[in-house]
Amino acid sequence: MDIGHRLRAIRKKRGLSQRELATRAGLTNGTISLIEQNKTSPSVASLKSLLDAIQVSMAEFFATIEETSQSKYFYTATEFTEIAPPEVSEGASQLLSLRQLGNAQDHALQILHERYAPGADTGPELLSHDAEEAGVIIRGTIEITVDDEVGTLGPGDGYLFNSRLPHRFRNTSDVECEIISACSPPSF
Rank of each mutant, 00 (worst) to 15 (best):
A134V: 12
S46I: 10
S33C: 14
P118G: 05
S33I: 08
E125F: 11
R170S: 12
I138Q: 09
V44A: 15
T172W: 02
A9G: 09
G15D: 02
S187H: 09
F80I: 06
L153V: 02
V150L: 09
Q105H: 06
R115D: 12
R139A: 06
L165Q: 08
M1R: 08
I179L: 01
E149I: 08
R139M: 04
R164D: 12
R168T: 04
H107N: 08
L101F: 13
G135N: 04
S71E: 15
Q55H: 02
T122S: 15
K72M: 11
F61G: 05
I137G: 00
D121P: 08
S71W: 15
T31Y: 15
G30T: 12
Q94P: 14
G15R: 03
D148K: 11
P42N: 10
E143L: 10
L21P: 00
P155D: 03
E82M: 14
P186N: 02
E125S: 13
P118D: 04
D2R: 11
T122E: 13
S17F: 03
S43G: 14
A45Y: 07
T145L: 11
F80N: 09
T172F: 03
D157V: 04
P166S: 07
C177S: 13
V56L: 03
L126F: 09
A22Y: 01
L21I: 00
H5I: 10
H167Q: 07
Y75R: 02
A120D: 04
K12I: 01
Q105E: 15
A117S: 09
K72H: 15
K72A: 11
E67V: 07
A22P: 07
L96I: 04
D130T: 01
D148C: 11
F61E: 03
H5V: 06
H107I: 00
